[in-house]
Nucleic acid binder design. Structure first.
Length: 497
RNA sequence: GGUCCUGUGGCCGAGUGGCUAGGCAGAGCUCUGCAAAAGCUCCUACAGCGGUUCGAAUCCGCUCGGGACCUCCA
């Protein structure tokens, strides 16, 4: 049946996707750290994997989609001291750590809703799985790959690398890793520079803290994903996703931990999305070039020329392959905005069209072309999720739809079967798979009633060639941000800007 | 410094060795009371230099430019 091929970061090539359990897919995606607001860069993985999730479901898989919330503090170097990201922010904002985490979790969920992403099947939190993480660390110690040191626990990378391929995923060379010199807090506790923390001893002022066999502390930053993925998806599961910047050390470490614990490589297919850049540079806190999602939607940011609708952003992301970098600019976003509008208008017109007459295609050549363009959707998507190519095909069909609408070509140019296929495909792909929705706020029933009334008055005025009145209505509406368009054949359509 | 990725027309971006996506912007025309849409047409690019090949944007090498990771990071 389907021949889905995905690019596997682990093997660096496209592979035929075959799930462990036929008909079912287990997918884990690294979720947000809720110590602050999400920015445009964060939107990419969640939209990318939302479409992957939707497509897998569309092709008949039952998907268990797990996306975590990282709400336990990890390390961040701020100034000289290594401080807990969440704890320090909490002091600044005078909020309880969990209050802060709740606030940003809510904000994240709000943004995901704006983007029309489907919620994951399970959204586990790190703080809710401290016990599982401790158990996993114990297992790693028992297996001889973890050691306690001064209340912290580290993973013995050198020992692991002796018998396993540490660095396979990220292309890292272990010997080079071992000689990396870096002045990081806690480094003297490690046997080796390359070792990473499984558990960290908490200083007295550290607010987020839990009791453990090694003293009071908090989990290291790779263990949560290993623990939660194992718990909800099993020792080995199908897909693990996330940003390319997580390849090393996060995902590499995840593999090491899980492999020791579960005696198997945890993931069959590693899928990584590329970064969103701004002026050619990755958007990230350390580069000081982030545009928060709230700013993006409101336009309230110095480099934004205007506000951008969440659907514009979603469409912008889908117009590029997920493994390519995507450069942000006002020009690019505005191009997407206009493109989406044109595509969506055509889609809405298409939904209102009906086909009568003989079932055969009166323009076989066009009919075949459209059929071909439509059939290619699956082909493109099965080729490592080429959403951009599907959209390109849709745009090739747009003039056909508009021409039918404007009666430049008869609806019977296409066969009855193909016309129905066209309608179904656009609905399924645009709405169900790409998760796009109308950007119009015109779904207020009272407004619709008022508009029907104004349109009736304007039609009447036009029929009397009373252009003063008809122009008045249209111009005043334009001032209010409502565009009224005269369609061919005397009808009028309207949209809210 | 190490590992890896990348360089496409005014801008954004697809591109599996041959048949040269798509969007946005721009130009012209058509439709139209006007406007806006829409339709048609035009603008044919692959950083540079070599090489492989009947044929390269696509493969190889070198040069130059950009980026990611090596540290928290989507």
């Amino acid at each position: 049946m389907n021949q889905l091929k995905v690019y596997n970061s682990l093997t660096r090539q496209k592979e035929l996707f075959t799930p462990i359990t036929p008909g079912h897919v287990g997918m884990y995606v690294c979720g947000p750290t809720v110590s602050g607001e999400s920015h445009l860069g964060h939107a990419r993985p969640y939209i990318t994997f939302d479409v992957i999730n939707r497509y897998l479901q569309h092709t008949g898989y039952k998907v268990r989609y797990v996306r975590n919330i990282t709400d336990a503090g990890h390390f961040e170097e701020e100034g000289r001291e290594a401080v807990d990201k969440i704890a320090s922010k909490a002091i600044l904002e005078k909020l309880e750590p969990m209050e802060l985490v709740q606030k940003y979790t809510n904000l994240f969920h709000w943004a995901m809703d704006q983007f029309n992403t489907l919620p994951p099947s399970i959204e586990p939190t790190a703080t809710g799985h401290i016990v599982e993480q401790i158990e996993m660390i114990k297992k790693i110690i028992d297996a001889g790959y973890g050691y306690a040191s001064n209340g912290s626990v580290y993973f013995d990378v050198k020992k692991y690398a002796a018998a396993h391929d540490y660095g396979k995923l990220s292309g890292r060379v272990i010997d080079e890793l071992l000689e990396t010199t870096r002045e990081l807090e806690g480094q003297e506790e490690k046997k080796d520079m390359a070792d990473f923390a499984l558990w960290k001893n908490a200083a007295p002022e550290h607010i987020m803290r839990w009791q453990s066999p090694w003293g009071v502390g908090y989990p290291g930053w790779h263990i949560e994903c290993s623990a939660m993925a194992t718990k909800y998806l099993g020792a080995q599961f199908d897909i693990h996703g996330g940003g390319m910047d997580l390849l090393f050390p996060h995902h590499e470490s995840e593999i090491a931990q899980s492999t020791i614990c579960n005696h198997t490589a945890p993931v069959r297919y590693w899928i990584h999305n590329n970064m969103i850049t701004i002026n050619g540079r990755k958007m990230g806190k350390s580069y000081n070039n982030v545009i928060k999602l709230t700013e993006l939607f409101s336009g309230d940011h110095p480099i934004l020329e205007k506000a951008y609708h969440p659907m514009t952003v979603r469409f912008f992301i889908l117009q590029t392959h997920y493994r390519s970098t995507l450069d942000f600019s006002n020009e690019a976003l505005q191009a997407s905005e206009k493109g989406l509008r044109r595509l969506w208008d055509a889609f809405e017109h298409l939904g209102k069209l009906t086909r009568e007459g003989g079932a055969a295609a009166e323009d076989p050549e066009l009919d075949q072309k459209v059929a071909r363009l439509l059939k290619e959707f699956d082909e493109f998507m099965d080729d490592d999720f080429s959403t951009a190519k599907v959209l390109a095909n849709m745009f090739e069909i747009v003039p056909v739809i508009n021409s039918i609408k404007d009666k430049l070509i008869p609806v019977t140019a296409l066969s009855a079967e193909n016309f129905l296929f066209l309608q179904n495909r656009f609905q399924t792909w645009l709405v169900d798979i790409f998760g796009l929705k109308s950007v119009s706020e015109a779904d207020n029933s009272k407004l619709q009633g008022v508009m029907q009334l104004l349109i009736a008055i304007r039609k009447e005025a036009k029929s009397r060639k009373d252009f003063v009145t008809s122009d008045l209505i249209r111009n005043q509406l334009a001032n209010l941000g409502i565009t009224l368009k005269d369609e061919k054949g005397g009808d009028m359509s309207w949209s809210v800007d």
